[in-house]
Each structure stands twice: as C-alpha cells, then as structure tokens.
Amino acid sequence: METKNIMIVGVGGQGTLLTSRILGGIMTEAGFDVKLSEVHGMAQRGGSVVTFVRYGDRVAEPIVEEGQADVLIAFERLEALRYAHFLKEDGVIVVNDARIDPMPVVSGAAVYPEGILEKLAEKHRIYAVDAMGEAKKLGNPRVFNNVVLGLAARHMDFPKEAWLSTIAKKVPPKTVEINQKAFLLGYENE
C-alpha cells in the first residue's frame, strides 16, 4: 500500500496529542508501519501545533510535506487555512467549525479572516462540524476531539469497531463511553 499521510492541526492545548495516539494505536494494530511526528515544548502554550501521521507498508520520513496530505484534521478554522497547502489535490479537510483568536487578532494587530470554510471549499473537499457544540450536548466539551476524529475516520481505512476499541485503550477508563459516543457522533454525521 502506498503510504497515507494524515495531519492534525490545531491550537496548543486542544489535545492534538491524544488524537495522534489514537491514530498511532489503530494503525499499529492493523499491522502497518507507522511514523508520527509531534510538537512538544513552547508551541504547546497556545501556539499553532501540527502533528504528522503516516502509515503504509514501509514509511521513511516521519513528516508530511507540502502537497502530500491525504487528510487534514483541523481543530480550528484558521489552522485549517494555515496548513491547507499541505493537502494533495484530492485531499480532504475535516474541520472543527470553531474560532480561537490568536494573540495578534486579540491585540488588534491582525484581523481574523472571514469566510474560511467557503474559501477552502473552492479547492478542497471539506467536512465541517461544530464539535464543541456536539460535545457539550454529550455533557463534556473536552471530548470534542473525538467528534472531529469520527468525521475524519470516514476517510481512513479502518472499521468502526477498530476505532471504538482503540479509543477504549487510549482515553482514561472513566471517559471511554463518552469518548466513544463523541466519536460516533462524528462518524455517523454524514
């Protein structure tokens, strides 16, 4: 199988590392060669963060480069736009329809772009979800990542059951059920 390239982008503190652990887990279980690359340290303090996930028969480099991503999972709109040029021509964007103002916007030095989703839709297949709203309905806004992941899972090569069992292994035991529910909300969204 040709190597498949996934990116997870968002704002430091949004929990991109948990999502990458789930992805790494399910790909390993399926017997693929897997490489992931994460950002730790200063950027985790509210900065723009990106995680690369690659799987296939044999994976060389751990990063996804510009023009190569099959799926871009974005936890925030502006971050989707920032990394959209990493997508392949037929790549898919899955985006949490949320806005978090970066400091230059808060301080008035820059303007948050309007119409991001429409702009992205001109070139790419895009799937958006108000994951925070959905997660709040479930009673815990923190599980929003798995709503987004559920939506993205439709564009990867693993069965629903495998996702649910991997989530069960990677999230705190007390939160397995709500995280699986969140995932299914996204997965069955289409």
Binding site: V11, G13, R45, G46, S48, E66, L81, R82, A84, P104
Partner: peptide, 18 residues
Amino acid sequence: KPAIDPAADVPARPPILC
C-alpha cells in the same frame, strides 16, 4: 520542484501564556 500551492497569508499564532 513539487507543485505546491503557496501558503495562505494568515495571522500568526505564536505561543502565549495560558
């Protein structure tokens, strides 16, 4: 040279105090 779209011109998101 790979055919790559230019990166969108968007506001930076530097790290900040929590």
